[in-house]
């Protein structure tokens, strides 16, 4: 940079300056910057919570806590309650988790313990690709492909067997409803649970497993009594990750749930979830009380997700402490 003959002063001064800047300001500045960035998240959460409360205030004032256990959702009469949405949210989430968790664990075990490396790599990549599919694609696929299959083949077939007598499988096989929504949800959370479970199982030390094999255990025994035990807290973490996603998933469910405001028992029944009601009706909600009630639904979901996160944290901490104590 400097032409020859220019006094050595400036570069020397620059060097000093740079050193000072580096020692005195760089670290604090970097810390301040990162703190500010971190605070943005906290502030966003606080602001979101505040806006949700402010905008749902007309509804909170009108319905009080009764909103949480009122079954009404009647836009023409102006009565609103969260129960049918909560019911549908948990119904679809339970279906999704019941289907996805065992499958995810089995796939993770296959990838880590049993599959040859080439197969493991292919299946692993496929799972990661599945995680990258946008939820609207799942929704449209569910509606255009899965629903006809369910209504023409799967649901009539189930009803023709002895299962058809159970209350779980009553009602017209329309294809739309809890079962289809739960099935697509399961596919959507599967990659997340699988990925985390796979990483957890990978971290089980080889020596521990070999000790198990050394005692003459079968692969199944080592898996069940060593790997799963060892990775339990991580697997619970994976479970909660999937659960959080299933609770909040919107577009796919909005297409498949059937959007009725009641509490049908059958798996073939239709209903609504908090997010499906928001996605389906918010845009055309012209009545101010209806908008407010919808925002209160959002608030309820916000709190529920928060509580689940908290529970997951507490559980993980307890599990970790217990494991630490044992070691």
């Amino acid at each position: 940079m400097n032409a020859p003959g220019v006094p050595a002063g400036p570069p020397g001064a620059m060097k000093v300056l740079r050193r000072i800047r580096h020692r005195r300001y760089a670290d604090p500045a970097f810390r301040a910057f990162t703190t500010a960035c971190g605070m943005v998240v906290a502030l966003l959460m606080a602001a979101m919570f505040a806006v949700l409360i402010i905008d749902s205030w007309p509804s909170i004032k009108k319905f009080g806590v009764g909103f949480l256990w009122s079954k009404a959702w009647d836009t023409t009469a102006g009565h609103y309650g969260a129960v049918t949405a909560l019911y549908g949210t948990f119904y679809t989430t339970v279906i999704a988790m019941v289907l996805a968790v065992p499958l995810a664990l089995v796939i993770a075990l296959l990838l880590v313990e049993l599959a040859p490396p080439w197969l493991s790599r292919i299946v692993g990549t496929a799972i990661e690709l599945l995680a990258a599919v946008p939820s609207i694609v799942f929704g449209l696929w569910g509606f255009l492909v899965l629903v006809p299959i369910m209504s023409n083949h799967v649901e009539p077939w189930i009803q023709s067997t002895f299962l058809g007598k159970l209350w779980l499988f009553q009602g017209p096989p329309m294809g739309l409803g809890f079962l289809t929504a739960g099935l697509v949800l399961a596919l959507m959370v599967l990659p997340f649970i699988t990925a985390v479970a796979r990483d957890v199982l990978r971290m089980v030390p080889q020596v521990v497993k070999e000790a198990g094999y050394g005692m003459g255990s079968t692969t199944w025994e080592v898996t069940r009594k060593v790997s799963l035990r060892y990775g339990l807290s991580g697997i619970v973490g994976a479970f909660f990750l999937g659960l959080g996603r299933a609770l909040g998933e919107t577009m796919a469910v909005a297409f498949l749930i059937g959007q009725t405001y009641d509490m049908q028992k059958s798996l073939f029944g239709t209903g609504n979830t908090i997010t499906s009601t928001l996605a389906n009706t918010f845009a055309e909600a012209t009545d101010s009380l209806q908008r407010s009630a919808l925002i209160e639904l959002g608030l309820v979901l916000f709190v529920i997700t928060g509580v689940f996160q908290l529970l997951a944290h507490l559980w993980l901490r307890r599990a970790r402490r217990r494991m630490g104590g044992r070691a």
Binding site: T75, F143, I257, Q259, T270, N280
Partner: peptide, 23 residues
Amino acid sequence: GAGTEVNWPVGVGAKGSDGVAAS
């Protein structure tokens, strides 16, 4: 009653006019 969405006594909901047509 009448509204942009109502409490339907029967039936299932499909998303959009194209969704109803497909159903």
